[in-house]
Simulated scan of single mutants.
Amino acid sequence: MSEQIAEFEVTWPTLGYLQADWMAWHLPIPDGFRKGQPFILSDWQLWCTANHGRVRPETPWRPEDPIKNQAFAYRRSLVVGPQKYGKSPWAAAETAVMALGPDLFAGWAGDDDVYDCARYGCQCGFVYEYEPGEPMGMPWPTPLIQLMATSEDQVNNTWRPLQQMVLRGPLSERIRVGEKFMRIGDDGVIEKVTSAESSRLGNPTTGFVQDETGIYTKSNGLMGTAQTMRRGTSGMGGRGIELTNTWDPAEESTARSTYESRAADLFKFYRQPPKNLSYKNKRDRRKIHAFVYFGAAHVDLDSIEAEAAELLEQDPAQAERFYGNKLVRGMGTWLPEGVWEGAYASLGRVVA
């Protein structure tokens, strides 16, 4: 059901490479020892960007009425990854593309076509030379982007790196940064939305990021909130991104619904570890961590192991979900996974 890095061979048209170069030129790394250096996508981040930017090869170019989300193979992307995998900085970079970068399809390149930032009011000097036949990109004229999470602290996981990327790079000339919203030129906005700020929903958004959709459930009302945001975006021809740690399969959540959906236009990135490895076995656990953190060179696997080993003593299911990237039911589940279904199966019945 999900795309894997092992299959990282792009044989289809995409805006992903243009967007990756645009990010590296415009966005500095927001923190850490490499703060200020160009934000260059890791393998898994580039794979997700290439897929999110995948263009349908039959898409026609209509200058007076450009095709928006239907120009792309995927109208939404779900990225499931372990703790500290780099999901939030990647989402911040994707948000910058939604705001001022080549987020829309703009036709097919000829022999001498280029993407020139100066054409769109940016004097940073960025120029990208297209290959003949490559899809071309352009920014939204009036972008409205929403970053959603359950709380202020959660939404700041994406908001804070985005702030630093803007303030420390050339986008500072075009985006005014605040604590609650960012003004894009004269007509665009990036804003926060939490469960306490749902009045902002229903706006004509052109893009969104929903963080930790594994805890957007029917019981807390956030599953409906996420759907409302999606409806507002689809009406404008926009697209969105979901991020999450592995969800509790005992709960009905937005992430679970997206992952289990049969819709063909949803990109799903979820590297599940080999099933023959036991997370409770230290040697197997090391292999699991190496697998699920592949492509995240910034992560210290020894530090992950130390935290996971301690958490295993208190809440084994949480350790497996957060660090092992495994679908495991939480400690609050009243029966172990498979017991209820197995009991009904023994009676010749099927659980719906």
Rank of each mutant, 00 (worst) to 15 (best):
1 M>R: 04
3 E>A: 08
6 A>T: 14
24 A>R: 11
26 H>A: 14
27 L>S: 05
27 L>A: 05
29 I>L: 13
33 F>D: 15
35 K>L: 04
39 F>I: 02
47 W>T: 04
52 H>Y: 15
68 K>E: 10
71 A>P: 06
72 F>P: 02
79 V>T: 09
81 G>I: 03
84 K>T: 14
84 K>A: 13
85 Y>F: 15
85 Y>K: 02
87 K>T: 03
89 P>Q: 05
96 A>E: 13
100 L>T: 10
100 L>I: 13
101 G>Y: 08
103 D>C: 13
110 G>C: 07
112 D>V: 09
114 V>N: 11
117 C>E: 15
119 R>T: 14
130 Y>A: 07
131 E>Y: 02
132 P>T: 09
139 P>E: 01
139 P>T: 02
150 T>P: 00
155 V>S: 01
157 N>M: 15
160 R>K: 11
164 Q>A: 14
164 Q>V: 02
166 V>T: 07
182 M>E: 12
182 M>S: 05
192 K>D: 14
196 A>S: 14
196 A>E: 14
198 S>H: 10
212 E>A: 00
213 T>W: 07
213 T>N: 00
214 G>S: 13
215 I>M: 01
218 K>L: 08
233 T>K: 00
250 A>Q: 07
255 A>G: 08
257 S>E: 13
261 S>Y: 05
266 L>F: 08
267 F>V: 04
270 Y>D: 11
277 L>A: 03
280 K>W: 15
282 K>I: 07
290 A>S: 04
298 H>R: 01
300 D>Y: 06
304 I>H: 07
309 A>V: 14
320 E>F: 11
322 F>C: 15
324 G>Y: 12
327 L>F: 06
332 G>K: 02
336 P>D: 12
338 G>V: 10
338 G>D: 10
340 W>D: 15
342 G>D: 15
343 A>K: 11
